[in-house]
Write a protein that binds this DNA or RNA. Structure first.
Length: 601
DNA sequence: GGCACTGACTCAGAAATATCCTT
DNA sequence: CAAGGATATTTCTGAGTCAGTGC
């Protein structure tokens, strides 16, 4: 009730222009839109501050299909004896059973949380029998799901086609909404099915039961005068509201972390495209401020105030190393990970001299998603001296920047530039790095394949800067070996061609006629071609090796201004499809519409 | 008037699925 | 040319950022 009242109040105030709501208050950029051919779809937003839409109509979310009990032949065993489970308990048992081969099921925390939550779903009699997970045998359940997956794989072409069409029908029915008169694609129109929570790293809640979401849990957001979505038969929505200061269509509270989950638009929608564009424009604006900001934080390294010094050193790391802001986390609620502001003394080591450099800082900590950040960086002397000072008389678990929070840092940044926050530095440095790398690596005379390789190299430099990692693909070793075999074969071909060329040369010397001359020429060209192919292959191998543990996708999708890539494609005659897949081109439609070959970030 | 909490949004790698390529 | 394996793309949902709110 109070929420509704507050929203109305806020709406009334925003109409009067008194409450500058956040993202929109920075305004949709337009001033820099100097590139040719900006489509009407990407014209300046007409809404007043904070208002995201005038009309929003949709079908509501699609719910997970109801649980299908196991066939009679699939049994669960306790202490070696088959136990027939109630439907509720059986459903949760299948969540575990199907994960049997997974590493999660070997982790003590996962097992403990699962068992604890599972027992809550059991009937009293079941709870009396099933008292230890170690005595549970899910192997038949596991096999059942493995077989089911295998059966799906070998379906006939017709059956596969049928499944595909069903998915498409679902997409058509639930996958779109109308926003301000335009049909827009929804990102995640399916409610997350129940299952076991899969936290990353050492998450204290891994294995907990993620309950099934019912219409009664779901809040719908749509315009008052639109066709209100129908809840599934016999059910009701938790609430239907009409808040046009937010972009979500439906929301529910997730049972493990007690956080809100949303149904939102697809990245290819106009709304998402505009915010992405705005994000890059903010980062581009930083270009005009960054020199001044840098000289200021350098000056602040010598500030009399400890708070200011800490802020200046932290900002230096955020700028130089592209660290994330690092909000505080409630301990016990999530894995122990940190970002810049939440670094602890134990995460840095100071080396007066290392790797032939002076004043080296060694970082070793777990960042977002428990991805390890390890880096040894030479820093300027005042930074080093400050770090020594910050670490003085502190224990390893103490905060390195004890006088700094992300809030105070961002407040400071906001004063330096409108719309500036810590994460803008990541966007800025990622994009500017791509632009510089492309400039340094691309040769106009290269083949398309070589240019794409250069692009991937540039992309990789950014991914490494942002510490975007992936697990080495399971197929890596094998595919690397295949490539090496190919290289070996090519080397032999080259050797063979070289020998033939030598013979042809001798032949020509002896004969001196036109025929032997043309044979010589042919052999020469063949050798050249093979050598080129060999070079290509070995470059490919290097590329593969270097990319083994680097994830390029995240930076490509979120940090690199797509206009840089599009301009590069145009300038060097590389088809844009070689760089962006179909969905990526849809996501970056705004950029394709406006970036010419002379675009500069 | 700082600070804990929370809502709404972006960004993250794994897993699932589709497509391509080889045999 | 079909099978099946490798690779590319898409989906999924967890994990961050950051400002507003209320005490």
């Amino acid at each position: 009730m109070r929420v509704v009242r507050l929203l109305r109040l806020r709406a009334a105030l925003t109409l009067l222009g008194e409450v500058p709501r956040r993202p929109a208050s920075r305004g949709v950029p337009g001033s820099r839109r100097t590139q040719k051919g900006s489509g009407a779809r990407w014209e300046k937003e007409k809404h007043e501050d904070g208002v995201k839409w005038r009309q929003l109509e949709h079908k509501g979310p699609y719910f997970a299909p109801p649980y299908e009990p196991l066939p009679d032949g699939v049994r669960f065993f306790y202490e070696g004896k088959p136990v027939r489970l109630s439907v509720a308990a059986e459903e949760v048992a299948t969540f575990y059973g199907r994960m049997l081969g997974h590493e999660y099921t070997t982790k003590e925390v996962f097992r403990k949380n699962f068992f604890n939550d599972w027992r809550k779903e059991m009937a009293v009699e079941e709870r009396e029998v099933i008292k230890s997970l170690d005595k549970c045998d899910f192997t038949e359940i596991h096999r059942y799901f493995v077989d089911k997956a295998a059966a799906r794989k070998v379906l006939s072409r017709e059956e596969k086609q049928k499944l595909k069409e069903e998915a498409e029908k679902l997409q058509r029915e639930f996958g779109y909404c109308i926003l301000d008169g335009h049909q827009e694609k929804i990102g995640n129109f399916k409610i997350e099915p129940p299952g076991l929570f899969r936290g990353r790293g050492d998450h204290p809640k891994m294995g907990m039961l993620k309950r099934r979401i019912m219409p009664e849990d779901v809040v719908i957001n749509c315009s008052r005068d639109s066709k209100i979505p129908e809840p599934p038969a016999g059910h009701q929505w938790k609430e239907v509201r009409s808040d046009n200061t937010v972009t979500w269509l439906a929301a529910w509270t997730e049972s493990v972390q007690n956080s809100i989950k949303y149904i939102m638009l697809n990245p290819c929608s106009k709304l998402k495209g505009e915010t992405a564009w705005q994000k890059f424009e903010t980062a581009r604006r930083l270009r005009g401020f960054v020199d001044e900001i840098r000289s200021q934080y350098r000056a602040d390294w010598k500030s009399r105030e400890m708070k200011t010094r800490q802020r200046a050193v932290a900002l230096y790391f955020i700028d130089k190393l592209a660290l994330r802001a690092g909000n505080e986390k409630e301990d016990g609620e999530a894995a122990d990970t940190v970002g810049c502001c939440s670094l602890r003394v134990e995460h840095v080591q100071l080396h007066p001299e290392a790797d032939g450099c002076q004043h080296v800082v060694e970082f070793d900590f777990l960042g977002k998603d428990c991805i390890r950040y390890y880096n040894r960086v030479p820093v300027e002397k005042p930074v080093y001296k400050n770090l020594q000072l910050f670490m003085e008389s502190k224990g390893p678990r103490d905060n390195l920047f004890d006088r700094l929070t992300t809030t105070s840092l961002n407040k400071h940044l906001q004063e330096l530039m409108d719309g500036l926050t810590a994460k803008v530095f990541r966007t800025y440095n990622a994009s500017i790095t791509l632009q510089e790398q492309l400039r340094a690596l691309t040769r106009a005379e290269d083949s398309i394949a070589a240019k794409i390789l250069s692009y991937n190299r540039a992309n990789r430099v950014v991914a490494i800067l942002c510490n975007h990692q992936r697990a080495t693909p399971s197929t890596f070793e094998k595919s690397m070996q295949n490539l090496q075999t190919k290289i070996q074969a090519k080397k032999e071909q080259v050797a063979e061609a070289r020998a033939e060329l030598r013979r042809a040369r001798a032949e020509h010397k002896a004969q001196g006629d036109g025929k032997s001359r043309s044979v010589l020429e042919k052999k020469r060209r063949l050798l050249e071609k093979l050598q080129e192919q060999l070079a290509q292959l070995s470059v490919q191998a290097t590329d593969k090796e270097e990319n083994k543990q680097v994830a390029l996708g995240t930076s490509k999708l979120n940090y690199l201004d797509p206009r840089i890539s599009i301009a590069w494609c145009k300038r060097f005659r590389v088809p844009v499809e070689k760089i962006y897949s179909k969905t990526q081109r849809e996501r970056f439609a705004w950029a394709l519409a406006m970036a010419g070959e002379d675009f500069e970030f």
